[in-house]
Amino acid sequence: MAAPWYARVATTAGRPAVLGATLIMSMPGEYHVARFAGWTDPWAYGMPFSLSAYAGIAAVVAATRPKGARGRFSATVGAAFAIVLALAAQVVAHLVTTGHMDHDQAWLIAVTSMVPPAVLAHLLHLAATPTPATERVPAPAPAPAPAVSVERTEQPPAPVVPVVPPKPEQAPALPAEEQQAIEPPVPAPIAYRDPRCAAIRPLYDGGYRPVTSEMRAALVDAGYGRVGDSTIREKIRAEVEQHEPHLKQLPPAIGRTA
């Protein structure tokens, strides 16, 4: 059963609102930790953006790469590390602000100073790691055909068969050019930019436009893992319908929602 409309609206509109609220609430603590470590304005404002962008990029890479792909484990560890850093920054900032902790400590300054170069190094590692679309397994070389020995035998010449013109009721064979004009050309296969499009294209063969839950199940069966709803609708399905615009005009299945 489809969720009620107010639940879908709350889910769609609530996620960006919660994301914005949490980023705004986290920025003061991360800014103060940077000031404790010795950064002055305006450089201290870079700490909230570094931690927030790092956590978001690592989480997206970890969620979008299929299981077993290169860089997925590193992105998962980086996302967990970013969450730990963000949590630690909030805890330290509030402990110092409330007087429960002294910010002038060598270990705190040293750990905070290592955050920007560590974030930069891991982001460059993720950028240099190839995505599943570029990981190609070379096709095995074809095995050489076994040598076949052919023995030539003397054969008598074939008898000459007289050419008989076609009967009136038999239509002569058409030239190759006209035969090709009658037969419709076979369309070339579509080369998708995102290989996940090939996993949901067969769903259109049922005569209706597939919904998000069907496309998500097809992607999981194809080994791509769980993909976000917005990515399924706005990227994967959009590319399929960009190549074949008539698919977008198909009616939705009865009892299903997009």
Rank of each mutant, 00 (worst) to 15 (best):
P162V: 09
E177V: 09
F49L: 11
A158G: 08
L250N: 05
G71S: 06
G78S: 12
L124F: 04
L219H: 04
I24S: 12
V61S: 01
I182C: 02
P252A: 12
A59K: 09
A10C: 08
P66N: 03
V60E: 11
L51A: 05
P28R: 04
A93Y: 01
G228H: 09
Y192L: 05
P252L: 11
W43F: 14
V18D: 09
A2N: 06
R233D: 08
C197R: 02
F36C: 07
E239F: 05
P116K: 02
T22V: 15
P28T: 03
A253V: 02
V96G: 02
P175Y: 01
A158R: 12
R136K: 15
F49C: 03
L247H: 08
H243S: 05
H243A: 10
I182V: 14
V77G: 02
P245K: 06
R152Q: 13
W5T: 15
Y204P: 03
G78P: 00
R152I: 15
V92P: 00
G56Q: 12
T40P: 04
A222T: 02
K67G: 12
Y31N: 04
P146I: 05
A89T: 09
V220Q: 15
P251Y: 05
F49W: 03
G225P: 06
R237I: 07
L85G: 07
A171R: 13
E30D: 11
Y224G: 02
A44L: 07
A141K: 14
Y6C: 09
A110S: 09
T231A: 10
T131G: 13
H122C: 00
A253Q: 10
P202C: 04
G206S: 12
G255K: 04
A222V: 01
V150M: 10
T76S: 09
A139S: 14
P132V: 04
V111D: 05
H100R: 14
S213P: 06
E30Y: 11
A88P: 01
A110I: 07
P159N: 08
D104G: 04
I109W: 04
P157H: 07
A37C: 00
E169L: 09
G78Y: 03
A37M: 01
A191D: 15
Q180F: 06
G56K: 08
A10Q: 10
A145K: 14
P132R: 01
P187L: 07
F49D: 04
G228K: 08
Y54V: 01
T22R: 14
R193N: 12
A253W: 00
R196Q: 07
V164A: 09
H94R: 10
T97C: 08
T231V: 07
P185A: 13
R136S: 15
H103D: 09
T134C: 04
R209F: 09
G38A: 05
A59H: 07
V227M: 11
R35H: 11
V60A: 12
A217L: 11
V150G: 03
H32W: 15
P195D: 04
A191E: 15
R209Y: 09
R72E: 08
T76C: 05
I236D: 00
T97P: 05
G14K: 07
A59N: 09
P130S: 13
R233M: 10
R216D: 13
P142T: 13
Q105M: 10
V137I: 12
T129R: 05
S52Y: 08
L108H: 00
A63R: 13
I109G: 03
V92K: 03
V163Q: 10
I236Y: 02
K248Y: 08
G46R: 00
V119G: 00
P42D: 06
V77I: 12
